[in-house]
């Protein structure tokens, strides 16, 4: 049986948002009614950036609100989209007169509610562009039908690059184009040793035998693509890396941005082992990791698992990645 540190599970999200805001009083503000986090001092004369989605993926998205990244992050219930009304109010709050880029992970509910909010905010003369993040290689079925690839950890890259471009004064169209380009080039693979447990529940979302690994998991406790035998850290890293290398067609001399991401119940020592292994594997193939991020940034409650995100990196993207950022979860 699992236990969680919660009060009434019904109050989990507003209480967690309040806790985040109280912990960063100089950086963040909370809109209680519509459950979105804004910068304490709203930016002026720049393109606004709004993101959001279901909760349970913290620090995504509210942890990335601040200078150089998001203006507003709106939170739904655990693994459930915020309502269209919440997204509408969050989108309007993000507008400083130069339009708003909505960064949306590719899930049916999120896409529906952000599209609707984008359409309605036009009534108030707010221009919007949507950037869809769909990096999850495990859900790449190649067909035109169906919902397409899910959005996962590449969201951090898109939010960072768009945030830097917006901060530097780029136009609505240019910020959106930078986000779309990053989303189109980044791919992620994930695996889990155990599933997460909904706050207040006593059982995890699925169970695995001791010798099994769930490969190709999403961030909502969905079952993965297949179950494979358990192996050591180097072996697990290879499981994720091989399909990514093939998909991204990486060659000797290529440069990439890498995210080694914990899914909520993974500890930093484990992530460092994966990062080490990833560096060695790619170095052997002549691929340089130019920039990297190692930590738990896009999680699935307390899922014990990892994801690796790779994106071929060009000079402009490297500059945007290096630009200053000051948020609760990412600062340099």
């Amino acid at each position: 049986m699992r236990r969680s540190i919660v009060n009434d599970p019904e109050d989990l999200i507003p209480e967690a948002l309040e806790g985040l805001m109280l912990s960063h009083p100089l950086m963040l503000d909370l809109h209680e009614e519509h459950r979105f986090i804004t910068r304490r001092k709203p930016a002026t004369d720049k393109v606004g950036l709004v993101s959001g989605g279901g909760s349970g993926h913290e620090p995504l998205h509210a942890g990335f609100v601040g200078t150089g990244m998001l203006d507003v992050a709106v939170a739904g219930a655990v693994f459930a989209s915020p309502t269209a009304l919440q997204v509408l109010e969050a989108t309007k709050a993000a507008d400083a007169g130069r339009g708003v880029v909505q960064i949306v992970k590719n899930y049916t509910g999120d896409v529906l509610n952000f599209r609707i909010a984008g359409e309605i905010s036009g009534d108030d003369a707010v221009r919007t562009e949507m950037v869809l993040v769909d990096d999850d290689l495990a859900t790449d079925t190649g067909g035109e039908d169906g919902p397409g690839r899910r959005g996962t950890a590449a969201t951090v890259i898109v939010e960072k690059l768009c945030g830097a471009a917006a901060e530097a004064g780029a136009s609505l169209e240019d910020v959106a184009a930078i986000g779309r380009r990053a989303a189109s080039r980044a791919r992620t693979m994930s695996l889990a040793l155990s599933a997460g447990t909904h706050p207040g529940d006593t059982e995890p979302q699925f169970t695995l035998e001791d010798d099994e690994v769930e490969l190709g998991v999403g961030i909502h406790g969905e079952r993965g693509r297949e179950r494979v035998p358990f192996r050591d850290a180097d072996g697990l890293t290879e499981l994720l890396l091989e399909p990514l290398r093939a998909e991204l067609d990486l060659h000797r001399g290529d440069e990439v941005l890498a995210i080694v991401n914990g899914l909520g119940g993974t500890y930093p020592l484990e992530l460092n082992l994966v990062a080490r292994s990833l560096h060695h594997h790619l170095a052997d193939a002549g691929v340089a990791i130019q920039r990297s991020l190692v930590g738990s940034y896009v999680t699935s409650l307390d899922m014990h698992g990892i994801s690796i995100t790779l994106m071929p990196l060009d000079d402009e993207q490297a500059r945007l990645w290096d630009a200053p950022v000051r948020t609760p979860a990412l600062t340099w």
Binding site: T83, L85, L88, T108, G109, L112, I116
Partner: peptide, 10 residues
């Protein structure tokens, strides 16, 4: 209705 979740709300 826009304050309601699911698909029927939007």
């Amino acid at each position: 209705w826009l304050a309601v979740g699911g698909t029927s709300g939007p």
